[in-house]
Amino acid sequence: MGFYKTEAIVLRTREWREADQLVTLLSPDLGRFKVVARGARKPRSRLRGGIQPFTQARLMLHTGRSIDILTGSDTCKCFYFREDLEKLTWAVYWADLLNRLLPEREPNPAVYFLFLQFLYLLESIESINQERVESRILNHLFELKLISLVGYRPELTHCVNCQKALSLTSEQIWFSPARGGTVCRLCSQALGSGALPVSSGTLALLKHWLRMDARQFRRVRPSGSNLKELERLLPAFLEYHLEQGLPSRKLVRNLVDKE
């Protein structure tokens, strides 16, 4: 393949050998992949600026024997969250989700542009200390849209066990992370403790969010009880598909517990 170019967002970096950096990238045409930035830890390296986490850049790369090599970068946008610990926590958590949910080298342009859009939306929140509810809403919206784009869109209108159409107004409904969606009362008893009760208001909110343009997230204000339900359902759904927890999830729980 030789030399090639791509646009990408930096998900994470870590030290590699004496002076290099191993960089995990998300690209619309290459998906999630890793490259080596040689000499990037040296003070005068011209690669340092373009490989900071949450930087969007146009990259020049060269095909290597076992891993490709970053040879140049042109920064498009740097989301500088280091001075805001709470914004940084959300961004790190989202990057961890992408790193775990996306297979390597499988392009998914919709996921790339979703992540880019949500970084802009996160940046637009002026003061998370005053508007932590806003950031929690944004996070749950990202979780829901991401899991839908990677093939785990939850079923919210029928029982996933017996296929019965569910009424939001006339019956209690449960949500099964293992089955991938809503469950009627009778089937929830058969499934045992794996199903979680969910209110009609939270289900209606999830349905609306799946259709909604993320830029409109400020127009929808869930109640406190809706947020608490979302903070049980969505992490449980994600953890089932991740098969194990994320370290950054603990940081997210700490933010929520401050409320």
Rank of each mutant, 00 (worst) to 15 (best):
Gly2Tyr: 08
Tyr4Gly: 06
Tyr4Gln: 08
Val10Ile: 13
Leu11Ser: 04
Arg17Ser: 11
Asp20Val: 00
Leu22Glu: 03
Val23Tyr: 01
Leu25Tyr: 03
Leu26Asp: 01
Ser27Asn: 10
Asp29Ser: 15
Gly31Lys: 01
Arg32Phe: 01
Lys34Arg: 10
Val35Trp: 06
Arg38Val: 09
Pro43Glu: 04
Leu47Ile: 10
Gly49Asp: 08
Ile51His: 01
Phe54Cys: 08
Thr55Leu: 12
Thr55Ser: 14
Leu59Ser: 07
Met60Gln: 13
Leu61Arg: 09
Ser66Asp: 11
Ile69Lys: 10
Asp74Thr: 10
Thr75Ser: 04
Tyr80Leu: 13
Phe81Ser: 07
Asp84Ser: 09
Ala91Gln: 05
Val92Ala: 10
Tyr93Arg: 12
Trp94Leu: 07
Leu97Gln: 09
Leu98Glu: 08
Pro103Ala: 04
Val111Glu: 02
Phe115Cys: 05
Leu116Pro: 01
Tyr120Lys: 15
Glu123Cys: 02
His140Ile: 09
His140Lys: 14
Lys145Pro: 01
Ser148Ala: 11
Leu149Cys: 03
Pro154Arg: 04
Leu168Phe: 07
Ile173Arg: 00
Ile173Ser: 00
Ser176Lys: 13
Ser176Ile: 10
Arg179Glu: 14
Gly180Pro: 07
Gly180Tyr: 05
Ser188Asn: 02
Ser188Gly: 06
Ser193Glu: 11
Ala195Asp: 04
Ser199Ala: 04
Gly201Tyr: 09
Leu206Glu: 03
His208Phe: 11
Leu210Cys: 06
Met212Trp: 01
Asp213Gly: 09
Phe217Leu: 10
Arg218Trp: 13
Ser223Met: 05
Ser225Thr: 13
Ser225Asp: 15
Glu229Thr: 00
Leu230Phe: 03
Arg232Ile: 14
Leu234Thr: 00
Pro235Val: 04
Ala236Tyr: 07
Tyr240Arg: 12
Leu242Glu: 06
Leu246Glu: 03
Pro247Glu: 06
Ser248Leu: 05
Arg249Asp: 02
Leu251Asn: 08
Arg253Tyr: 09
Lys258Ala: 13
Glu259Gly: 14
